[in-house]
């Protein structure tokens, strides 16, 4: 995950996507990263079968964000018994789009000489936050005012840092602070982010020094995104 650290973007620890018991001996664990403006599936393949594995290939089912492999899976030599291999698969976002439920669901098929294995690996939304997600202040104000109250969802969120630190930390994960105000000691942060499919999402954080429970308000066209954006804020601010 070295290159991922260069930008400071938060990357989830790898989790098991395909347990060996369901993968005919192949275990796949992974996470999603974002480096130099590209989404990556960072995976670890482990051969827990009683035979060598070879002829690996990967395919993604149609998904909400048009994610497709940007290159074939590069596993040149066979994977021996008990061998582990780290594989990084770059993804493009110009593939066929099909809305999934939940919206961040991604279905994966991995083929080897033994079988074709299927698993699901939900994408943490922040892997899709692009570097150009900072809205013009005027656009932010207009959008915020034009969207009806029904498009706003509020969440309590634990933030154990100052507003300055939160602004910096969020920025490294492509959440940009468009404006901030301090009213009676209360910090109000107005933020924007953009997804790879060009959807803008706006947010407000209301936080009080000494009180770790802040309020995160998320405003966007599709409220389906609100929960996932909240999950991303939590992952970024609490790790």
């Amino acid at each position: 995950s070295g290159p991922g650290l260069a930008t400071g973007m938060y990357v989830e620890p790898k989790t098991v996507w395909l347990p060996a018991a369901k993968g005919k001996g192949l275990e796949v664990s992974g996470t999603f990263g974002r480096r130099q403006g590209q989404v990556f599936m960072d995976m670890t393949f482990t051969n827990k079968a009683m035979q060598q594995m070879s002829q690996f290939a990967i395919q993604l089912n149609k998904n909400s964000f048009g994610l497709v492999p940007a290159s074939p899976l590069s596993i040149a030599s066979p994977l021996n018994m008990n061998q582990t291999l780290d594989v990084s698969l770059p993804l493009n976002t110009n593939g066929p789009v099909q809305r999934m439920d939940p919206i961040n669901s991604l279905q994966v098929a991995v083929k080897n000489n033994i079988d074709v294995l299927y698993f699901s690996s939900p994408i943490p939304l922040h892997a899709l936050f692009v570097e150009t997600g900072e809205m013009e202040r005027r656009d932010f104000l207009n959008e915020w005012k034009n969207l009806p109250a029904a498009n706003e969802v509020q969440f309590p969120i634990e933030i154990h840092m100052t507003a300055d630190e939160a602004v910096q930390k969020l920025k490294t994960s492509n959440i940009f602070t468009v404006a901030r105000r301090n009213l009676d000691g209360q910090d109000m942060l107005y933020q924007s982010l953009k997804l790879t499919n060009n959807i803008f999402i706006m947010a407000e954080i209301k936080m009080q020094p000494g009180n770790p429970t802040a309020t995160l308000s998320i405003k966007c066209q599709l409220v389906d995104f609100s929960n996932l954006v909240h999950e991303s804020y939590k992952a970024i601010l609490q790790n």
Binding site: R137, L141, A179, L183, D184, M188, Y190, K206
Partner: peptide, 22 residues
């Protein structure tokens, strides 16, 4: 241009005020 920026500053201040106290 400068006037426009001041308007925006004011607009954000008003937005924050309207939302700071429920």
């Amino acid at each position: 241009h400068i006037g426009g920026d001041i308007d925006l500053d004011e607009s954000f201040s008003k937005l924050a005020e309207s939302r700071s106290n429920p």
